[in-house]
Design a protein around this nucleic acid. Structure first.
Length: 435
DNA sequence: TCTGGGGTCCTAGGACCC
DNA sequence: TCTGGGGTCCTAGGACCC
């Protein structure tokens, strides 16, 4: 089976550019939540030396000096672009797994090597024409090989955005030779160091190493990587979204927060948002964990990090139940006078709403007939009038703790409101997002 | 010197990813 | 002054069981 990884180039920056064609050729940077770090750069910004992940305050002057256009991120808009890209991709492959917001694995059974490149170029062309987003394709026998090929497709201008790893051993090895082992997908700094200690320096070294030996010092994870590199697929393309295991909502504050009512408000807001995600996906949660973090970049200030859990009995997707449980956990974990930098809510023990009701007779959340109708009404109103048009009072109105997002593009703000009139879309692919 | 041998389930923490 | 957010998988170790 031939596989491919289609990965959007500089995805968030490309979205901003697709919305505003006057940005073509202009260096662009997109910032993370809270306008903290650089999370996307156009090719021009990369060439100007803006590093990925750099804290914005460190590169601000460089941006100003070169006229780089800087944008706060607008994830709901990027999510819509993602759906369009995915729906085009589904037309080209039998199997598709949307792996993240900007990349998808594709499966092509029974395709000869000779046809791969032409197909890759066609896909690239079609996605660009219909969505305005440039993608690169890496093709090969396994996901790990596709990933490496994709990286090269991005860096090698002569590739035309498509690289195919040959399926014969000699061609594969030639491709892997010289690639540092740390550049292999799944080999982080820790594994890379262990590999090097065993004289495995390149991807080719790992591909030809004895698998059981690799297993001894790098575990099953390392063994699978070695097999994938020699063309033995250990990671299939997964089309059905597996049921997710947790829902997390965390945000840094715009400034340090110690005031208890502000913390209450922030935690309630995150809890309500998490419950909303549950309802969107037809899930109930059995426990909530509240996270508090101080600023680790200020070691001189009192530090405190805590994950405090509280059961949800019975399992629920009701914003009120989640908020009050979160509030109890917060009350136990918060320390007076400590300045927190971040708060979050994690929901665990997820199960489908239907099964939650079936397996808990007498305790069914649906036993409160008003509950479900109320939450449905809230969701419907917010869908029509905008997020938080209707909300729990405990989630606050001032929201002084809110993160910064001062540089959203006008184009993205407009696009955000126009969902119903967005360009006609193919039916939504049934895919998962890791956001 | 020597301490049974499997199992399962749960949790915490590490590692990695986008 | 200013440093993101949201996930998954694996492993080790403890509790408990036959």
């Amino acid at each position: 089976m031939f596989r491919a990884l289609a990965d959007c180039n500089n995805f968030y920056a490309s979205c901003e550019r697709a919305l505003d064609p006057s940005l073509v050729g202009v260096p662009i940077v997109v910032l993370s939540n809270n306008d903290g770090c650089v999370v996307a750069r156009s090719a021009e910004s990369k060439a100007l030396g803006i590093p990925m992940g750099a804290p914005y305050f460190q590169v601000r002057r460089l941006c100003e000096a070169h006229g780089i256009r800087v944008f706060s991120s607008n994830f709901s808009v990027y999510g819509e672009f993602s759906e369009r890209v995915m729906s085009v991709l589904t037309e080209h492959a039998r199997d598709i797994e949307a792996y993240s917001i900007d990349e998808a694995f594709l499966g092509f059974p029974d395709m000869p090597d000779a046809d791969a490149r032409a197909l890759g170029l066609r896909i690239r062309e079609d996605v660009l024409r219909r969505t305005g987003i440039p993608v690169s394709l890496g093709m090969g026998a396994t996901k790990v090989l596709c990933k490496l090929a994709n990286e090269r497709a991005k860096s090698d201008k002569a590739s035309g955005g498509v690289i195919v790893v040959p399926s014969d051993a000699a061609g594969r090895e030639a491709f892997l030779r010289g690639l540092p082992v740390g550049s292999v997908w799944g080999v982080g700094p820790g594994l890379a160091a262990r590999m090097r200690a065993h004289a495995i320096l390149t991807a080719a070294d790992l591909a030809t190493a004895d698998a059981s030996l690799v297993r001894r010092f790098a575990g099953v994870v390392g063994e699978r990587l070695a097999l994938e590199l020699r063309g033995v697929a250990c990671h299939e393309i997964v089309e059905e979204a597996s049921q997710r295991k947790s829902v997390m909502v965390t945000r840094s504050f715009g400034r340090p927060v110690s005031d208890s009512s502000e913390l209450e408000e922030a935690v309630a807001a995150h809890a309500a948002r998490a419950a909303e995600k549950l309802r969107q996906e037809g899930l109930m949660a059995s426990a909530v964990i509240v996270l508090l973090r101080t600023d680790k970049h200020r070691p001189e200030a009192p530090q405190h990090r805590v994950d405090e859990s509280e059961p949800l009995e019975p399992p629920t997707d009701d914003a009120r139940a989640v908020c009050s449980a979160a509030s109890r956990a917060l009350a136990r974990s918060r320390r007076d006078g400590v300045q927190y930098k971040k708060a979050g809510v994690l929901l665990l023990g997820l199960l489908p709403s239907a099964s939650a009701q079936m397996t808990l007779p007498g305790l069914t959340p649906g036993a409160d007939p008003g509950r479900e109708r109320l939450m449905k009404a809230v969701d419907a109103l917010n869908a029509r009038l905008g997020r938080d048009a209707v909300r729990l009072a405990s989630t606050g109105f001032e929201r002084k703790w809110k993160a910064k997002s001062e540089m959203r593009s006008e184009a993205a703000k407009e696009a955000e409101g126009e969902a119903p009139t967005a360009p006609a879309k193919a039916p939504k692919p049934r895919i998962r997002f890791h956001e």
